[in-house]
Design a protein around this nucleic acid. Sequence first.
DNA 1: CAGCCTCACTTGTTATAACAAGTTAAATTC
DNA 2: GAATTTAACTTGTTATAACAAGTGAGGCTG
Lengths: 239, 239
Amino acid sequence: MSQPLHLDISEQLRQRITAGDYLPGAKLPSERQLIAEFQVSRITVRRAIANLVDQGLAIAHQGKGVFVTERRKAVYTLTSPGLFVAEDLQNQGIALTVKTLIFEQVTPPQSVQQLLQLPSAEPTAYLQKKILLMEQVPGCMDITYVLPEIGELLASALQHQMTFPVLERHNIPIERVEAMIECQNADPELSQQLQVPLGHSLLTYHHTAYTTGDRPVLHGASISRGDRFCYAVSLNHAR
Amino acid sequence: MSQPLHLDISEQLRQRITAGDYLPGAKLPSERQLIAEFQVSRITVRRAIANLVDQGLAIAHQGKGVFVTERRKAVYTLTSPGLFVAEDLQNQGIALTVKTLIFEQVTPPQSVQQLLQLPSAEPTAYLQKKILLMEQVPGCMDITYVLPEIGELLASALQHQMTFPVLERHNIPIERVEAMIECQNADPELSQQLQVPLGHSLLTYHHTAYTTGDRPVLHGASISRGDRFCYAVSLNHAR
DNA sequence: CAGCCTCACTTGTTATAACAAGTTAAATTC
DNA sequence: GAATTTAACTTGTTATAACAAGTGAGGCTG
């Protein structure tokens, strides 16, 4: 055997998916059917399916079956820092709800203290942890640290609305955002909150926002499902 | 049982990793040892380890063992389109080699034809597929379509050097880049080329570069290992 | 007819077993 | 002593088996 059986089978199934034999949303044959078709043991069929799931081509639902994944992604456009994630998605016709999990005053980790230039005497900030529901489905978890004076002032507003619009409305303009985008994998907590399998690919947008005078206002991370979202940015030479 | 055994075990191991009991690069206990410690079957231990691998915390080497992953990432800084990936990485002290897999004239897919505004009479372009080796290790696969006249002119230079510096040296300034960053998972080809397991998280940077007069010059995708790379960008309000 | 139950299906978990294949170091051979 | 072989480890593949748990349809009961 030059190649493992499970790979051989998952490649055949992959070909059928990319060829359109199984359309997005459609149910793949059950384990029992695949066992009969390929004449292998259940463990091999399950491994073949796991290969497809790992590649993001299929998703399994206990009791129901394995289904071909939908491949549409919503775009976060990173233009000027003013109009943000929320509006941009709503422009794409995606209903968006904010569910705050945590909103409290904490002592952030060293790295955040530094980025927000908190006074070392009393290095506190407001921590907001929220889930963004797109079309009633959790798509993004946002963890943001806000300067204490701003968190206190805008507590009620921040808990029900998107962050940046609230700030702009209260005369805290965002002049600059330093961002970093990376890939991570769902740990058990994120797996549960975003309702994805353990290890699922996630796209993380780390950002530090500065207001006039280059003073930092907030620092946070938006962790989105990697199979549902992407980021667009335009880079101009003339700056 | 409220929670599967394999999850229970992988969580205990995860805690040891995050607590620093097992440092990056260190070898985890062998399957045999874990079977003895947790008093479960091999299949359960293997599933627990698979959970860690899926979360990007460990990597398995047949015959050698399972090792805690290193967590350092190289940063691609997206500033002005001029200085690019290559220089940026070299500034970070990372040795970079280009290995061209394919360089030929082709008829690109419809979507690329449109982006490059190719004449529908003869919609050809040069396709370059290359592997970028960082410290002799494959880290990124780049697939780029270049306008035919440029591909022809700069064939030899493009095959051994980075794309953007070559263009700049030949008086083809890049004025604007439209980019999109997304997450994808390694299919068998990428898995083989980048030497990562099937389904491994990858970070893809799609880009279309325009020269003076807003004329498109090239369109491509840079597919990097998600566990090794990230993108940084600075967004200014004043544009 | 509404509600409940049962049954047949699905995927998920776990155990035992055997062999394959990559790695390393000790033992053997030349 | 150097090269080769062997043995003991490691993880990878595959089979068989049994039970758990989620789903949905059909039938039974009130």
